[in-house]
Design a protein around this nucleic acid. Structure first.
Lengths: 69, 69
DNA sequence: TGCTACTGTAACATATAAATTACATAATTC
DNA sequence: GAATTATGTAATTTATATGTTACAGTAGCA
């Protein structure tokens, strides 16, 4: 479940802990999402979008072929 | 959890059953998502995007203020 | 009328997202 | 070198997405 959360987070100069607090989840969940080991819910994706000021497509769109790994 | 799945599905002239089969889920899940009663996972959202040939933003982006109901 | 296709939804079971707690490591800063 | 910060991850628990089965209602069509 590849995504661009980590890049966006670093652009905003946020730590995983800070992003987690702003989103209202735990640091562990942020870590797992960034690592592509979780399949987050839409609601959570939208919350992350709000915090880093990016769209769903910007953060979570990956072409079908490169989605897995 | 408002979204535009129903509109896109009808544009593609698919029934809930047909969309469900193409996505690999049940008709009931499609119904609940269209009704906004479910918070689908990102993976499922992406699968729906593939089938109706729309982006995440086109199907699932709603402004923060109108997201709930 | 009756039949079929499409949709909404409820109850229960299962899979898994996410929380919680905890431990480990690397990179700092003192 | 000790203390702190940021991150990865494992085990367990909890919440919920999704499947399964089933029933009801509407609309169109013979």
């Amino acid at each position: 479940m590849k995504n661009y959360v980590k890049i966006a987070r670093i652009q905003r100069e946020l730590t995983q802990q800070q992003l987690a607090e702003k989103v209202g989840i735990t640091r562990q969940t942020v870590s797992l999402i960034e690592k592509g080991k979780y399949n987050p819910t839409l609601k959570l994706c939208l919350s992350i979008c709000d915090v880093v000021n990016k769209s769903l497509d910007e953060l979570f769109w990956v072409e079908k072929e490169e989605r897995m790994e």
